[in-house]
Design a binder for these strands. Structure first.
Length: 474
DNA sequence: CGGTCATTCATTAGTGAATGACCGGTGCCCTAAT
């Protein structure tokens, strides 16, 4: 059967999007693949379609529980019944049942943390996995080194699964990140598909101010005269709430989102935004992954992101529909401060490493006493189980210097006098092929194309059935 | 770096200024306590 026929019979699509065919062909041939496809290019089809041709299960490593739930729901909606997410949402009974029937699933979604647990490994050993997928594979290098070290351990599952082929998917990866993905997933000679990272319909703007008050004044007047939906990225949780409050005061439809909120509140905000009931979300960098909304017109950065990669990911959430979208980066003197210090705090300190190394049995106590941070302990434990204390210290120094380089690239972007699009693409080790007419602040921007806020239809208030019935009756 | 919170001080009573310490973002896990 031809691929198009499978595509049509299983999913009802009649043609592939750019890149999909190339990637899927290689997967079916049995190659390992690293695929860099921009947001909104149908990455998930790259493993969904092969699942209908390969004999065994497709195991998908996914970074967020909410993303997993989403993907499962989406597959079920398309009529796929044999799909499951293994995570902490499961009740013990459900979990027990899943272990019993594990081999019968066509798709299994799992977090890296769950994947490396000994019991889970033992369960997965019993089944036939044809394809291991690392979804959002840039997380390996974005989070693996300082935040979620289990991301560096995904390859441990390969011998247990008797070396299935591997597919790594991401929208943003520099050459360095691509190499790290290859190294940590133990891919010898993968087929690498790289789509251009450039998003032609995104226009890059930078606004500079003397202090944060001016920034705020600009933001409120900008939001009032701009068409949503839009995301405003703030540097801290508190700031995201503050900005949302200020906008709401002006009668603008806005809310906030950050990692410190209750899970259900986060889900609620995201859904409101996706349903078009909310024009603006003020958030930390927690917001965005797994947000499927195609018509985001604006992404504003109220503070600097910590890397160009992070910036591109956040900006990339705009304009998935292909229509013009504006990315505005706001800068006030002194803004680098927060950036610098956040980045300095990311990695375990020398003191933390030395404490854990000299009291390995009391590590948990060190966390309880507030001497070592919990995240730091996990990162230290990962490295100390592989390297000596002095090697670990050296590794952290090295990672620190890499982070400083990333921050410097971001600082350079703010002060750029040449084309921003060109600079960004070069940060991703690619070359720009042709500039759009509306390009960036340094090449001149036509602001008229991004739309003005529309008069919203009055919100429909759902009446109770009694009231509606009464209204119908004379 | 910049904002916030706690402490200190002067002093005769509850507050207000000044100083210094501290913190800031991203998520999985099924733990222990309700």
């Amino acid at each position: 059967m031809k691929l198009e026929e499978v595509l049509f019979s299983a999913y009802g699509f009649s043609s592939f999007r750019p890149g999909q065919r190339e990637v899927i062909e290689q997967v079916i041939k049995g190659k390992d693949v690293v695929a860099l496809l921009p947001t909104g290019m149908g990455k998930s089809m790259c493993y969904q379609l092969p699942a209908h041709i390969l004999p065994g299960t497709v195991l998908v490593v996914s970074p967020l529980l909410s993303l997993m739930q989403d993907q499962v729901a989406q597959l079920k909606k398309m009529g796929e019944k044999s799909v499951v997410a293994i995570n902490s949402f499961l009740k013990p009974q459900e979990r027990e049942k899943i272990w019993q029937t594990l081999g019968s699933y066509r798709f299994i979604f799992i977090s890296p943390e769950m994947l490396v647990q000994p019991f889970v490994k033992k369960q997965l050993e019993k089944i036939r996995v044809s394809l291991l997928v690392a979804d959002e594979a840039h997380c390996i290098s974005q989070w693996g080194f300082d935040f979620r070290p289990d991301y560096l351990r995904i390859a441990e599952i390969l011998p247990i699964l008797k070396f299935p082929q591997v597919l790594a998917l991401t929208a943003t990866a520099t050459e360095k990140v691509t190499q790290e993905i290859k190294a940590y997933l133990k891919l010898d000679e993968p087929f690498i598909y790289k789509h251009s990272m450039d998003r032609k319909n995104i226009v890059y703007d930078i606004k500079k101010f003397e202090d944060s008050r001016q920034k705020l004044e600009w933001l409120t007047s900008f939001v009032r005269k701009s068409a949503g939906p839009g995301i405003i990225y703030a540097g801290t949780r508190r700031k995201s709430q503050e900005l949302a409050a200020i906008l709401m005061d002006q009668g603008i439809s806005a809310s906030y989102y950050h990692g410190g909120m209750e899970h259900q509140d986060r889900v609620f905000v995201q859904q409101q935004f996706q349903n078009g009931e909310l024009d603006w979300v003020c958030s930390t960098n927690a917001f965005g992954m797994g947000v499927h909304i195609s018509n985001i017109r604006h992404v504003v950065h109220f503070q600097l992101p910590t890397s160009v990669e992070g910036y591109v990911q956040e900006v990339g959430r705009a304009g998935r529909d292909g229509e013009a979208a504006l990315a505005t980066l706001l800068y006030a003197e002194g803004d680098e401060g927060l950036l610098q210090s956040l980045v300095m705090d990311e990695l375990p300190t020398r003191h933390e490493i030395q404490q854990v190394a000299s009291h390995p049995a009391r590590a948990d106590q060190l966390v309880a006493d507030g001497i070592v941070r919990e995240t730091a302990l996990r990162v230290i434990a990962y490295w100390l189980s592989r390297l000596s204390e002095s090697e670990t210290l050296r590794q952290m120094d090295f990672l620190q210097s890499e982070k400083i380089k990333q921050v410097d690239k971001m600082k350079k972007l703010v002060n750029l006098e040449s084309c921003i699009r060109e600079y960004i693409i070069e940060c991703f080790d690619q070359h720009l092929k042709g500039k759009p007419e509306n390009c960036c602040v340094n090449d001149g921007i036509d602001y008229t194309v991004f739309g003005k806020p529309q008069a919203k239809p009055q919100k429909v208030v759902l009446e109770s059935w009694q009231n509606r019935l009464n209204a119908l009756l004379p």
